[in-house]
Design a binder for these strands. Structure first.
Lengths: 227, 227
DNA sequence: CGACCGCTGATTGTCGACCGTCGACCGCCT
DNA sequence: AGGCGGTCGACGGTCGACAATCAGCGGTCG
């Protein structure tokens, strides 16, 4: 993100990648939609090779599924896959959190500030902004641990979850106040508790997230098989 | 690995990717070596596009660094980066382990079997086989948790570490018996302990690994600042 | 009437060529 | 002699064309 050289030489594939990524994450392309190289290339004014490279990148991000010799589609995750990704994200965040000093860690002020903004945003009903704040909140924790690689992995998973959350909250307009409250709870535990307490409430927090996504019916077909 | 469709349609880029990956992981290419597209293409009998795609894939695996408009090189990790990757691997494995039932989990037999083979291998002094067994050992734990996404992330990190371990153990021919003993210790804790005990010994296990790599001088930390 | 089989269109796979850019080298100016 | 600007070679970036392959469709045969 803060790599100074990445602003210069933002290559064509990188730009295409970012554009397609943005559209997928904003649900301008819905899950399962076909992404055909040639039309995208013409639409974006580049050649197929360029689009192709961007699609491969999106594939490794888990945002696009590529069927060999067939066509690419926006990833549609099963309930199982969503749970797995969510759990992996939780595990990484817990791994970051256990490195922090609790109670007197200055990070708590930053977290509180984000939660305050969440409360304000919840009142306004801006779903997209809320999800961005969620990412910002957890990023604080991840970044504070100073583990760059771990943070990178987390960010990939978070982006995917963000896309799902967008589409889930879009469908049922509840939970913004609830979300703000949940995060406040996390901060409170951070203030007075230990790493163990924190991990526990974090896990509940994540489970709540995947549950609300499940109930929102984001997972179209596989939802029926939920235990 | 177990994807049935992956045997069919093993495309050219995939094959090239696997071949280059194998060479990097076996240290047939040393860290920092330049990987120029055109010569590689000719050597492998494919076009530059194909090699290019394989290099991108290796890049996202963290095995190759790509400098825009310049050339690609085999990744040379700093001490910090190694520690980060190692820690992330540990976090993921701990996240898998906490889902297991301890003491009576049937996995322990499989783990013990691997350790037994380790002991035999240590006597023979086969470094490469030992590293493969290490991967197999930890894979048992990861796979037993049944979290596919988490396992995939772990595997990527493990492959990188494997490359480093190969080159570190190559340089100092000690530690094979020591490695076997360490893993036996992990199994013992698994037998009688709880998830918390296990995570603790696992962390020591990982720290020991990164330390021995550090001492082996894999990370030319001084060389990093040298022209 | 249904199942099978080959045609066909759509889409990706692969390639070689041309273009732009970067760093290295060299000669000139101070 | 040292710094600087220009030139050159090397390499990645981008492209359009051609080949391979798959799914769906329509015709045909049992």
């Amino acid at each position: 993100m803060s790599d100074p050289a990445s602003f210069l030489h933002r290559s064509l594939p990188e730009a295409v990648y970012l554009e397609l990524r943005r559209k997928i994450l904003n649900n301008e392309y819905e899950a399962g939609q076909r992404l055909v190289e040639a039309p995208l290339a013409e639409e974006l004014g580049v050649s197929r090779s360029t689009v192709r490279e961007a699609l491969r990148q999106l594939n490794t991000d888990g945002l696009v599924d590529i069927s060999p010799r067939r066509h690419s589609v926006v990833t549609r995750m099963s309930y199982e896959e969503i749970r797995d990704a969510c759990y992996a994200r939780f595990v990484l965040e817990a791994g970051a959190a256990r490195l922090l000093t609790f109670q007197k860690d200055p990070i708590v002020d930053r977290l509180q500030a984000v939660v305050d903004r969440m409360a304000a945003t919840a009142a306004g009903g801006d779903v997209a902004a809320m999800i961005d704040l969620d990412t910002e909140f957890h990023s604080c924790i991840i970044d504070a641990a100073g583990k760059h690689r771990l943070a990178a992995l987390w960010r990939t998973l978070d982006a995917q979850m963000g896309a799902l959350m967008r589409s889930s909250i879009d469908r049922q307009h509840i939970g913004l106040d609830e979300a703000a409250r949940r995060h406040q709870q996390v901060v409170d535990v951070f203030r007075v508790g230990t790493a163990e307490d924190f991990v526990q409430i974090l896990e509940e927090h994540y489970l709540g997230t995947v549950d609300s996504m499940a109930q929102a019916g984001v997972l179209d077909s596989a939802a029926a098989f939920k235990p």
